[in-house]
């Protein structure tokens, strides 16, 4: 087997982005497994796809649109029903410190 497709640092980075807490042993294990998967998928590169349009969707349909009409929402009570933590009107999450959203 040649150069690993994914090294340990990349696994750490991906796990961080996905908010997964992995042990050092798992990181090593996943680096091996993910590399094997990528190597397998790389076989596709043997095909000449230069004349193939990228596929945006696997279904041969488009323009599934709806009219701008109001539908019943769940309402506050039902919306919060599955929340691990909540108050009267809001989901509660551990205090958010400095790290703004990505919009």
């Amino acid at each position: 087997m040649g150069q690993k497709k994914i090294d340990i640092e990349q696994v750490r980075q991906v796990a961080k982005l996905a908010r997964l807490a992995l042990s050092d042993a798992e990181i090593v294990q996943f680096a091996v497994q993910l590399s094997a998967i990528l190597e397998y998928v790389e076989k596709l590169n043997q095909l000449d796809t230069s004349k193939v349009e990228p596929l945006a969707h696997c279904l041969p349909i488009n323009n599934c649109l709806r009219t701008d009409e109001i539908k019943q929402s769940l309402g506050t009570e039902k919306t919060l029903a599955n929340a691990p933590q909540k108050d009267e009107q809001f989901f509660l999450v551990p205090k958010i410190l400095e790290e703004p959203g990505g919009l």
Binding site: I70, T76, T79
Partner: peptide, 28 residues
């Protein structure tokens, strides 16, 4: 970023209304 003046959300029929009761215009 410009908010569009539709009556409902982008991908569902929940109503867009300013200052509604929190979490009242939410669906699956």
């Amino acid at each position: 970023h410009v908010q569009l003046a539709t009556r409902t959300k982008m991908f569902c029929g929940c109503e867009l209304i300013f200052a509604a009761e929190p979490n009242s215009r939410v669906c699956p």
